[in-house]
């Protein structure tokens, strides 16, 4: 009697074979080690980054000998002393920190209603429009977007031309601190919306209805229901925006007119203009330290938001 092919298809046999092979390679007694095995790529990646940091740390302790353009053999804290005492570095660091905080606050203010509308709108067409408008900038690089602002906000740009129509003479809209912050907010907005949207989706619409049926107006509902429940999203979005803004290079370089450098620009200059890898490494490590402290502070004050891994295995 012919055996039915459907009774035990060949694909099952292949799977059996693979399972058998897997069992030989990774016997059942190793099962407890499986999670660690799956962690291995991440550990490897982080390990490489740590090795890089160690290397950068070593470079930061060496000063440039300008008679040979080699790094010194001796280890010294001279670069750190320079970074902490030269007013230029303090200016740039202060500008970067202040800028990242301002950009984060403004971005969250703009992103929240956008995300809320995108999540709550009953109109499918509007939701699609908002999604497309959100993702479109991701297809255009940061540099191209910055150059776009040069065209729009330049002395002979669209905005000044429009102002000229009503008799306003051309004004300098670019190459200053507000222009850099404006460019950063525009760049960060999609990131913030993307981080906020899942948090807002997780808030049941019925809660808002319940608050409303209990007499709360829209403002009270927003303040006492939506905002507290959206906090994880706000924290997550804030962390992403503040770290990306703090370390941004292109927007300050292009929209700042050369006089609004952020820390990343100063690091670039040390590595590539003055060939001082030691100083560049020092500033890099200090940026990592300041960024980590900032994130740690937010974690302490507000928790990790949507970035947190809450709860253990039940």
């Amino acid at each position: 009697m012919r055996r039915s092919r459907a009774a035990y298809p060949w694909t099952w046999r292949v799977m059996d074979g693979l399972e058998s092979l897997a069992a030989r390679l990774w016997p059942a007694r190793f099962e407890k080690g499986l999670p660690y095995l799956m962690l291995a790529p991440a550990v490897l990646l982080v390990g490489i980054l740590v090795l890089g940091l160690v290397q950068i740390g070593d470079s930061s302790l060496r000063v440039l000998d300008t008679s040979t353009f080699l790094m010194s053999e001796d280890l010294t804290l001279a670069n750190y002393q320079r970074a902490l005492t030269e007013s230029f570095f303090a200016t740039v660091a202060g500008r970067s920190l202040l800028g990242s905080v301002i950009v984060t606050i403004v971005t969250l203010i703009f992103a929240f209603p956008y995300a809320y509308l995108m999540v709550r709108t009953p109109s499918s067409a509007l939701r699609k429009f908002l999604l497309v408008a959100l993702f479109l900038p991701f297809f255009i690089g940061q540099v191209v977007r910055a150059y776009g602002w040069l065209i729009i906000l330049g002395n002979q740009g669209m905005v000044n031309e429009a102002l000229g129509l009503v008799g306003v003479p051309p004004m300098r809209l670019l190459y200053n601190y507000p222009a850099v912050l404006f460019g950063l907010v525009q760049y960060m907005l999609p990131f913030a919306v993307l981080m906020l949207a899942p948090a807002l989706t997780a808030i049941p619409a019925e809660l808002e209805s319940a608050a409303s049926s209990l007499g709360a107006n829209w403002l009270r509902t927003f303040r006492h229901v939506v905002l507290p429940l959206a906090r994880p999203g706000l924290v997550g979005a804030g962390l992403v925006v503040v770290t990306l803004s703090l370390t941004d290079f292109a927007i300050p370089a292009i929209l700042g007119g050369g006089s609004q450098d952020f820390i990343a620009n100063a690091i670039y200059d040390q590595f590539f203009r003055t060939s001082d890898q030691g100083m560049g490494a020092t500033l890099s490590l200090m940026l990592v330290a300041v960024g980590s402290l900032l994130v740690g502070l937010v974690f302490m004050l507000f928790g990790a938001g949507t970035l947190a891994m809450t709860g253990g295995r039940k």
Binding site: G258, A266, T274
Partner: peptide, 18 residues
């Protein structure tokens, strides 16, 4: 120029970024 570049660069930046 190369021996003093880093110092001149920092000073120029200090003035212009201030």
């Amino acid at each position: 120029q190369v021996e003093n570049e880093s110092q001149w660069f920092s000073k120029f930046k200090e003035i212009m970024q201030g």
